[in-house]
Amino acid sequence: MRNPENVQSRISARDRADRLINQLTAGAAIAALGAVGVFGVVGASTIPGATTASTASTTTSTSTSSSSTSSGLQPAGGSVTSSSSSGVVVSGGSH
């Protein structure tokens, strides 16, 4: 027959492990969320990329291009007659 004290200690160890698992899971989730913020800031400071949206909108409004791109990317120079809508134009950014 099992010793009742031994059974009780196993039950309390199980409860303690359950609590610890929950705490570690929540801690990992919160830490990961924080890490997304930190890595985002670090990434933005090391490789910020090119801010093409504002320059592209002014350029397209003054150019002679007949492109119908709406993604805010700067179109290639000259008269463009393509009507592609995906706007896949590399603007020099490292994106």
Partner: peptide, 11 residues
């Protein structure tokens, strides 16, 4: 969005 993609990938 771009920064979030990169950071979430690293995490």
């Amino acid at each position: 969005l771009w920064y979030t993609t990169r950071a979430a990938g690293a995490v």
